[in-house]
């Protein structure tokens, strides 16, 4: 590859436009993994079997690991973890809203459908990053991909089991009806989409990725007796929700979740600089 013409260089050497595009690609990816994991952890003592407690915890741990890998690359640009997560405002997060929704109460099918739709997307996204022009991303893609197989297997396995009888299938159908429009936010474009593709930070457009995703998820879900509001040819019968996440717009559930998982950080006053003496002006 001729680095001169198409490859991006070190974090310090990027032009403003390149850096903006790299950030725009990484932020939804990092936040998506992080917030999905936050939601998964709600299940880790309540999944239907001890093995699934372990499985969902393990998957959450992987996704947190992936989030950390992508946040590392944002930290290359001078941000700290506190800037990116613990002290960030709700609107600074760019994850697709699929991952922030609370689970329908006690609904394991929700966790499984969400995981399936997300993992099928993530795998596609990672493949579209394998040929990235940004070496810092290229270094990490293979490692993350290798850890995704198990997630996909887990979700498919549970989907089949849940769809084994009518009451189970009905639960899955309800979860699918509720989540599918939000799953479309995974492919929502940002204003940086053209730049990301032109600079080959990602080698496929989100539109193309969505097409491939539909080709895979629609037949599989239909084969389980589920009805999907889309066809594998790319026709989609539902609208995008009002809040897509990747533009900074979020559902009302998001500030609540953020508040909850940053509570310890705030309680420990980690955001406050330590002071040995009272400010004389305030004394």
């Amino acid at each position: 590859m001729s680095t001169e013409t198409t490859g991006l260089g070190t974090p310090e050497s990027l032009t403003d436009a390149e850096r903006e595009a790299v950030e725009a690609e990484l932020r939804p990816l990092a936040d998506g993994e992080f917030v999905l994991a936050e939601r998964y952890t709600e299940w880790q003592v309540q999944a239907p079997t001890l093995e699934s407690d372990l499985a969902i915890s393990n998957i959450a741990q992987d996704e947190l690991g992936h989030a950390r890998l992508w946040y590392d690359l944002l930290e290359d640009f001078g941000y700290t973890e506190a800037d990116l997560i613990w002290e960030a405002s709700p609107g600074e997060f760019r994850h697709p809203t699929l991952v922030e929704l609370p689970f329908a109460e006690g609904d394991w099918a929700d966790a499984i459908v969400r995981g399936y739709l997300y993992d099928a997307y993530e795998s596609r996204h990672l493949h579209a990053l394998e040929g990235t022009s940004y070496p810092r991303i290229a270094d990490r893609v293979g490692k993350v991909l290798a850890e995704e197989d198990y997630h996909t297997q887990h979700a498919r396995n549970w989907l089949s089991r849940l769809c084994d009888d009518e009451p189970g299938r009905e639960r899955v159908q309800n979860a699918l009806d509720r989540l599918f429009p939000y799953a479309l936010t995974l492919f929502a474009e940002t204003e940086h989409e053209d730049a990301i593709v032109e600079m080959r930070i990602r080698t496929e457009s989100l539109a193309a990725m969505r097409g491939e995703w539909l080709e895979v998820v629609v037949p599989r879900l239909e084969s389980l007796g589920l009805s999907v509001p889309a066809s594998e040819d790319g026709e989609v019968l539902v609208d995008l929700p009002d809040q897509v996440g990747k533009d900074g717009s979020h559902t009302e559930h998001w500030p609540e979740l953020l508040e909850e998982f940053t509570r310890t950080y705030r309680k420990l006053e980690l955001g406050e600089p330590p002071r040995l003496l009272e400010d004389p002006n305030e004394a």
Binding site: M1, L8, T10, T152
Partner: peptide
């Protein structure tokens, strides 16, 4: 062997013609 059952994850062709980036171009 940990290959998942055959759904098309592996079937999706990423553009194989694209040459990879130069590994570690960022380390000095």
């Amino acid at each position: 062997p940990s290959s998942p059952d055959g759904i098309a994850e592996q079937d999706i062709e990423t553009e194989a013609t694209i040459e990879g980036p130069e590994y570690c171009a960022y380390t000095d």
